[in-house]
Design a protein around this nucleic acid. Structure first.
Lengths: 348, 348
DNA sequence: CTGAAAGCGCTAACAG
DNA sequence: CTGTTAGCGCTTTCAG
């Protein structure tokens, strides 16, 4: 950006026309004669003219940029969301700028401030712990949508989804998982928690309730996790090995896979000794050994929808209504029936 | 971005000073009296002034934005690179804008053009198939660095690394892997390829050469892969099962893990029947069953370095010299010695 | 220490 | 169909 760039005026001068004309010609304004339009196009090409989006943004007061803040690109599910978001954004003529919050509210706020300064046209947050009000205050008047928000208030039973949020039916997923486990003969079920965020409590509660409904009393054992469970699942595995539940409902796939690994160290065989169910259906869930039964969250759909809601908000000026997406139980080896001890079942 | 934003002049007017003064005060220009600086700060705060980075960019002709194009955020290694890149960029006061090329040259070029229009201060490409010359032409005069470039010319033995590129010593990694396999008694080694990109041929050649050096003749069996190997490793696994090599050197971890899974379907046990080695050391490599031996690429270092080279180029005006980073062999269960058939070895 | 004025590159009325 | 004229909001000489 140091040296001079070719400017609109440069090409105008070469052609002996006005800058306005060149501008219009380049953006295919219908009232420019095809003849000059062609001349302009050629001249621009030859001079190596690259339009300055910054100047354009300033003039039209819109940047064609969407900001996305995500806890962690490294997470497979988040990665899929980012990909879908970016894809859809590009298709609509937008560029996306990215910031990772790492689950730290301060960082997320900083990112939002940055986006506001950059005058992005819209922002989306994924798995944010921030509440919608705080977000709005930071980016006003830019529309914002929250995908799979994790603000704890969202977990309360009577929480109404704030407008402009994409949610996933975690509770239904957990209920399906519980029913499945009961069907394969695993009634002594334990929930293995993750960090203390909305989805964690929603999933735990849903599992507990489903179990209560089916069995008539509340006997969901719960192992509490924290932000560190994924990295150090050893101690958790030890506690689990000691209690020997018949099935584990894990907060997410990463945790489930880490546990699959840690449980091996304790001599427990899945699914023979106990069943394990994950959440998300990340790509590796289908490749673990044993392959992981899990509740699939529609990652691509979440990313795509976020962009579409933003576009809608941009068009209408109103924050779009909230949407909640369905999940799907994917049954694999890790929750094979209790009766037949299956170690490496043949696959079709 | 629809409604009016508070502007510099707005706060100037409220205070009865000039816009220039407010501008200087806000950026802590030393020649503004502490008194007015404080007044300005307070007024800006109260009015909810959010500086317009777009206008600023236009004025200073620098955007404080770095563009990053990456094949696929979904890939664990790329995710780690993005994270490190973004982290380092933010630390240096930059925002990053992202585009995924999906391995498609056309998309990558489009992304670069977009970045150029956006007047990013620097661009980094990861695993790009584009050659440095093309890239430079598209973003001139913006500095560009290429990380783990995959342009096929890079694979030729006498290819000099173009300036401004971050490379990884793939060949050394493969040699270490071969030596390791020979040491554990697996001499009939096969290389399982990925898509036809530079790193794939470099790795294959390095493995072949290492084997030749050690054994005195060229007997590296090679299974060719393509862009689809990861999704459909079945047929590949069948061919491998038929040939029964003693060890598999895989193009990358994703492929290795997919094969681990597919080989199970063919009744082959790793490492008893054959050893498997991956490349990259993605997080799941440590959690697969069996845990995967692999050559670790320093993802975080790659992302960090890319930013630093860009900063250097920005400061000096020169493209920084190329750097090549070391890799590290990580031995795990999947390549346990051939003699002792180890299925689930105890871990410390 | 602060104000005035010019300009970054582009768009958008408004004339003609 | 095209030229002219103002800005968009901020920085930055140059005066004072």
């Amino acid at each position: 950006m140091a040296e001079r760039h070719v400017t609109l005026r440069d090409v105008a001068q070469v052609l002996g026309v006005s800058a306005g004309t060149v501008s219009r010609a380049l953006r295919d304004d219908p009232r420019i004669s095809p003849a000059t339009r062609a001349r302009v196009a050629r001249a621009a090409e030859q001079l190596g003219y690259v339009p300055n989006a910054v100047a354009r943004s300033l003039a039209v007061r819109a940047s064609s940029i969407l900001g996305l803040v995500i806890p962690n690109v490294t997470d497979p599910l988040h990665g899929q969301i980012v990909t879908a978001f970016e894809q859809r954004a590009v298709a609509a003529g937008y560029t996306v700028i990215l910031a990772s919050g790492l689950g730290d509210p301060a960082r997320e706020q900083r990112a939002l401030r940055l986006f506001a300064a950059q005058r992005v046209d819209g922002v989306a947050l994924v798995g944010s712990i921030l509440d919608q009000r705080t977000v709005q205050a930071l980016v006003e008047p830019t529309p914002a949508v929250s995908v799979a928000g994790e603000h704890l208030a969202l977990a309360s039973p009577r929480a109404s989804s704030p407008r402009g949020s994409v949610r996933v039916d975690d509770a239904a997923g957990m209920q399906a998982a519980v029913r499945h486990l009961l069907a394969v003969g695993r009634a002594r079920i334990a929930y293995v928690g993750g960090p203390n965020v909305a989805s964690n409590v929603i999933r735990r509660e849903a599992a507990a309730q489903a179990l209560r409904q089916a069995l008539g009393d509340g006997r969901l054992r719960a192992f509490a996790g924290d932000w560190d469970v994924w990295r150090a699942p050893g101690p958790l595995a030890a506690r689990i090995a000691a209690e020997r539940p018949q099935a584990l409902l894990c907060f997410d796939d990463k945790l489930a896979i880490a546990l699959l690994d840690a449980l091996r160290d304790h001599g427990l065989q899945v699914p023979r000794d106990l069943a394990v169910v994950g959440f998300d259906d990340i790509p590796f869930a289908a490749l673990s050994n044993p392959r992981l039964t899990t509740v699939a969250r529609p990652a691509a759909e979440m990313g795509r929808l976020a962009v579409e809601m933003l576009l809608e908000a941009l068009a209408s000026g109103e924050p779009p209504p909230s949407r909640t997406l369905p999940v799907r139980l994917v049954v694999r080896e890790s929750s094979a029936p209790a009766a037949r001890a299956v170690d490496t079942p043949p696959r079709a």
